[in-house]
Design a protein around this nucleic acid. Sequence first.
DNA 1: CTACGATCTGGAGCGCGCTCCAGATCAAGC
DNA 2: GCTTGATCTGGAGCGCGCTCCAGATCGTAG
Lengths: 147, 147
Amino acid sequence: MSVTHRSPRFADLPDEGLSIAEAARRSGVSVDTLRYYERTGMMPSPPARTSGGTRRYHAAELDWIRTCTRLRATGMSTERIRRYVELVREGEGNEAQRLELLETHRAEVVAQLESITENLRLIDHKIDVYRERVARGDADGLWSTPR
Amino acid sequence: MSVTHRSPRFADLPDEGLSIAEAARRSGVSVDTLRYYERTGMMPSPPARTSGGTRRYHAAELDWIRTCTRLRATGMSTERIRRYVELVREGEGNEAQRLELLETHRAEVVAQLESITENLRLIDHKIDVYRERVARGDADGLWSTPR
DNA sequence: CTACGATCTGGAGCGCGCTCCAGATCAAGC
DNA sequence: GCTTGATCTGGAGCGCGCTCCAGATCGTAG
């Protein structure tokens, strides 16, 4: 049990890492976004560089970028991601703070989901009433130009 | 049955309507936003004006603003709201298009909700693994600074 | 009538999250 | 070595949805 398997998701990575274009393609973001994330402190550690200075992405970076886009997809601000990354950079000992940050975000997302769902429900209701009135041919007044 | 009760939600409105400040307060948006909505064509019909030119909001406007903020809360773009409003302005006969627009939006919101939920689930999973490792005291490597 | 806060208009500014650009350097094939 | 395309950096630009500002006018209490 407990076989060590670090970074299981990027098995087919060449040892020398990926170019920025390839990293972008695989992670579904643009090259510009990768550089933007890096320069605004959203990478726990920046990608390696070749002797010539071009970036090389390895599993650790690709894994983080994937997590990062998931966080962004749930609406976490880049600012908050930066704060998380800072905690990571500080090293071990602040795990509780990291979890708290993530769980705060989680709570906000859940609240947001509920808000959207509720508003959608209210709109749905309005759509239903509207549809019904249209069907009955007396839609005048409701959601049409007033006065 | 079927008692006529148009705009049941704004029973306590003075006949002369509300000032923009009062309308803003009641609908939970800013005065600037009300003017912004109006000037960018997001009101099916603009509020009435006093002889001196100040706006007076009545039930029809307040009702629309409420719906509008709900649409916005679900992420509908101002652009799309403008398209809807245009249809309303065109008058009757395009109800099918209006419904289609709303239902297109609805489908997008549902897809968005699913995406967020899925991403949150993936993040949750990562949190769980992390928490467990922290508890076991071997959190090094996972979500901490690579290399 | 006066004063003073509320509202008006046109237009500029802002914060976010990228996105694009110019000009220089690098990398790979011939 | 030369060419050609990829990548580099610093910085400007953009689209969205407001938000703020200046300078003028309105409206109401005293």
